[in-house]
Every structure is written in structure tokens, then in C-alpha cells.
Simulated assay, not measured.
Amino acid sequence: MADIFTVKEKSKLLEFLFAHLGGWSKKTIKQRLQGSSVAVNGQITTKHDHPLNTGDVVEVGVVKKASTQAQTLQKLEILYQDKDIIAIYKPAGLLSVGNTTENKQHALAILRDQLSRGKNQVKLWPVHRLDRDTSGVLLFATSKEMREVVMDKWSISEKIYLAIVEGSPKETKGTIDQPLRPDDKVYRMYVGKHPEAKPAVTHYKVKQSTKDRSLLEVSIETGRQHQIRAHLAWLGHSIIGDERYGTKGEKMGLHAKKLTIIHPVKKKPMSFEMDAPREFYALLN
């Protein structure tokens, strides 16, 4: 059941939630907001700076109704499967893992239902996550132990993305070596030196350019939250459709194309690859 609050004075949504959800950590509040679990006057919003006026009604605990695509999505494309790991293609618009127990429209839940047979319920552990609006290769482990073994070698895994950005970088290839840290007030990453910032390294190559946009191949040495999105925005070339770090659009131009890991049992490199869909490349024009 949703908690309902009436706004007494003008405020920003995230500030209001911090003030009225005293028993929750700021991290949890941000996750609920991003997980489409907050509504203002009956309308779901994920914007931290959504303006609140006196008399507005804020609901916490609601779940966004599944989109038409999500409602019809009953199976995910499996790229590779053995008794230890499963690699899938996650379409854009789908959460990797649910932020609330009520939300069943996420990749983990769909794949679990897809693989389970009757009372034999499959258990899965996400090795990593992709943002809701990022499509591409997503990896799960069939046990907590297998997940930990994969993660032990995660720093040497190869993670290649495609990104469509605003404008064209001056250099055809380059490296962004800028530390990242979560902002204390809003759900985004702060780029730059700070005592709490963690190292983050992103490499990029320009694959194609049009008049106003460019297609980049991006690889990351680290896997910080929003790393590619924050780094490219810092470079001055935000990802198309990335409202948080750039300009709002119908689709976001970020796709996880290839993932190479050390298999937890075979101890050999394994690669999983999926090209971006046609609608992704359409963003370049």
C-alpha cells in the first residue's frame, strides 16, 4: 500500500522525500524514485527536481504500469546458457532487476519464470546491471558462488558499448580518466577529484559521424554507476536521449554490445555479443 503525503509548502520532490521518509536511507529513497515508485497527483515521476506546490499529493510505493512492450514480453533472447552462467539480450526500457518486490517486469523475474518448470523454480544472481534504457548483453549466474567467481575477475573482463552522442569529439579516439562519486542530493554521478571519488576509466573511438551526432565504440576498465553516461557528458558529448546528463529524448543511445569474461568453471575467456537494434542506429540520423 502506498504512503500518501500532502505538500504543505513549495519544494523539490527529492528534498520532500528526504524530509518525510526519515526511516529510509537516502540511497533507498533515490532507488524508489528511479524505480517508478513515486507519484505526484497520480502521475508517476522519476525526476528528483520535480516541483511541488502546496496541496499536491505525493504517493510513495506505487508501481509504474508496464508498457505495452513489457506487458507482451514473456521471453528474453538467450545468447548463451550452461549450468553456471546465462547471457541474455536485454531490450531498452526493461529494468535489469526490480527495485521493489511488487515490480515483476524486469529481466531477472522474466528470465526466472522463463526457465522455471512447475515447482522447480530457477534461482539466478545478476553478475552486473544495465540501466533501464540501455539495451544489450546482460549476464546472470546460477548460484551465488558462481557470481562471486566471475566478479573476482571482473576487473579484467572486456566491456564494449556503442554510444550515439551529441556532436563529434575533436579526437577520433581518446581516454577519459576521471574519478566518479554519487551526488549527495540527486541521483547522478559527479565527475572530478574528491576524497570520496573512485577511479573510473573510459576509452572511446569515433566510428561514424553525421552533421550533429556521432557513433562511438566505448570500452570501460571500471564499471561505476552511470560511468559512460557521466564521462561522455563531461567530455561535452552527452548521449542522445539521456535526460539525466544531457537532453531528453524518446530513446537513449547506449547499447552494451560485447562482454568477455573468464568462465567461472572452464577458466577460459568467453565472449557474448549482440549488435544494437535498428532503432538504435536510427538515432544517428
Rank of each mutant, 00 (worst) to 15 (best):
E217I: 06
F140T: 05
E221H: 03
G118L: 08
K185E: 14
I164Q: 02
L139F: 07
W154G: 08
D212Y: 13
V149N: 10
I160T: 11
Q178A: 12
L215V: 03
V218D: 06
I156P: 06
K193M: 14
T172R: 11
V191F: 01
L130E: 10
I164M: 02
G167N: 11
D183H: 03
S168T: 15
S135V: 13
K207F: 07
V191H: 01
E217W: 03
S135F: 05
S155I: 11
S135D: 06
T210P: 03
P179T: 01
V165R: 09
P179F: 00
Y190S: 13
K185V: 13
L139E: 03
R129A: 01
S116M: 02
D177R: 07
L124N: 06
E221S: 00
L215I: 04
L111N: 03
S168M: 13
E158R: 12
V186W: 12
H128W: 06
A141M: 09
L162I: 09
V137D: 04
P199T: 02
T142C: 13
G136R: 09
S209G: 06
D131H: 07
V149E: 12
H203T: 05
N120K: 13
K159S: 04
K207G: 09
D152A: 15
T175W: 00
L124E: 00
F140Q: 09
S143P: 03
V165P: 07
V137S: 08
K198M: 06
V122C: 13
E148G: 09
P199H: 03
Y187F: 15
L162C: 11
H128E: 04
K153F: 15
S214W: 02
K173P: 01
E148Y: 12
E145M: 10
S143V: 09
V137R: 10
I176P: 02
L115W: 02
D131A: 12
I156Y: 11
A141K: 04
T210H: 03
W154H: 08
H194L: 10
K123Q: 08
V149S: 07
R147V: 06
D131M: 10
D212K: 13
W125L: 07
R213T: 05
E158Y: 02
D183C: 02
V201Y: 01
I164R: 02
R132M: 12
A163M: 08
H203E: 04
S214G: 05
W154D: 11
L124T: 05
E148T: 11
L111C: 06
Q208C: 05
P179W: 05
Q114T: 11
S116E: 09
L124H: 02
K193D: 14
T134F: 11
Y161E: 05
L115A: 04
I220R: 04
P126A: 08
P195R: 08
E221V: 00
E145D: 12
V150H: 07
W125N: 07
R112E: 12
T172N: 14
M146V: 09
Q121T: 15
G118Y: 07
K153R: 15
L180Q: 01
L111Q: 05
Y190I: 15
W154M: 13
L180K: 05
S214D: 03
V218M: 02
Q208D: 10
P169G: 02
K153E: 15
D184S: 14
Y161H: 06
E196L: 15
L111Y: 00
G192T: 00
G192D: 00
H128Q: 03
V201Q: 00
A141L: 02
K144P: 12
Q121H: 14
E221M: 01
K207A: 12
R147Y: 07
K198C: 01
A141S: 00
G192E: 04
K159Q: 08
S219L: 06
